[in-house]
């Protein structure tokens, strides 16, 4: 396999041919990694939709020194040898990312205080880093009633950003997809047509891949803010999945079971509904130890310090 040299924000990295700009940036790590609201490395064909990962290609390749005419979706654009990419070093990129954030929040309720996803919400992080201080809009948001799309999953369509990840999970992981995108444009909604239709062994992964609070765990609903629970790596013998999970504990009580997510919020392995919903007794599990959570989210990172004009540390 030939290796390509790519420069992102003046940092050079060597990656295999066929790597996307986003994954090349992830190989460097840190600040040069563009945000990704819809791309999910474990889901085939994901990405390209949210446009939050747009970057500037200032030189196409070693043999073609021209820049690409438009900003490109880094999650779907393959690197070429000698490519020069600007992410945070381009004012144009940052400006358009700000606009994308504004678009994503246009119809997204600011109901973080009552949203189970708060604290691990990618849109919360994105809007913290790239959002406006004050809104430009006076439009009313489109609203939907929250519905149960299965015994375990609550759909709050108001919060959905139409990343299509949950649809890809159903397509690629389960034997049959029972939900999809209905309607067109900003009337689009995730729906099942018949309520509570989603019922299969791996449907719970739809919750884990949802970047926002549109799909939440009904068994965890309003039990606790996530930052008041303690995550532990644990496993059990399971004939459907690897059985490797994270238990979110309050004392001895398991409030929630999820898959193990990496620093980009992506699952290391998909887990089955049996592990996720039916084993809430600590005796069912072999505890491995405290889970190290990548401190990337707004709440866990003490980001709000930067907001303090006095320079005093505000602790949560």
């Amino acid at each position: 396999m030939s290796l390509y040299k790519v420069t992102i924000d003046n940092i050079e990295v060597e990656v295999e041919a066929g790597t996307t700009i986003l994954n090349a940036a992830r190989k460097i790590g840190g600040k040069v990694v563009p945000p990704a609201m819809c791309y999910y490395s474990k889901l085939e064909d994901s990405g390209g939709k949210c446009r939050s990962c747009l970057v500037k290609v200032s030189q196409t390749s070693a043999t073609d020194s021209r820049p690409m005419p438009k900003l490109v979706a880094s999650c779907r654009t393959m690197v070429q040898d000698g490519m020069q990419v600007q992410n945070t070093t381009s004012a144009e990129v940052l400006e358009s990312r700000k606009a994308v954030t504004e678009f994503l929040l246009l119809n997204h309720p600011l109901d973080c205080p009552v949203c189970d996803q708060a604290g691990e919400c990618h849109l919360q992080d994105l809007s913290y880093e790239h959002g406006l201080e004050e809104t430009n809009t006076e439009e009313e948001r489109r609203t939907f009633e929250p519905i149960d799309i299965g015994d375990y999953i609550k759909l709050n369509m108001n919060r959905c950003i139409l990343c299509y990840r949950c649809i890809m999970v159903a397509d690629q992981l389960t034997d049959k997809r029972h939900h999809g995108v209905l309607g067109r444009g900003d009337h689009c909604e995730i729906g099942t047509y018949i309520q509570k239709a989603v019922d299969n062994d791996f449907s719970g992964n739809m919750i884990d891949v949802c970047p926002v609070g549109a799909l939440t765990d009904r068994t965890f609903r309003f039990k606790s803010r996530v930052w008041y629970t303690n995550p532990f790596d644990a496993h059990r013998e399971c004939d459907k999945c690897s059985g490797k999970t994270v238990l979110w504990l309050k004392g001895e009580d398991i409030l929630r079971v999820t898959g193990r997510k990496d620093k980009y919020g992506e699952l290391e392995e998909f887990i089955c509904n049996d592990c996720r919903f039916h084993h809430k007794d600590i005796k069912d599990w072999i505890l491995e130890g405290p889970r190290k959570i990548e401190r990337h989210s707004v709440i866990s990172q003490n980001h709000y310090e930067n907001k303090s004009t006095s320079g005093d540390n505000i602790t949560q």
Binding site: K49, C50, R51, A99, F103, L104, I161, L162, R184, G185
Partner: peptide, 10 residues
């Protein structure tokens, strides 16, 4: 608008 990508949808 098909609603697939956010700038156009919103």
């Amino acid at each position: 608008s098909c609603g697939q990508c956010s700038p156009c949808r919103e």
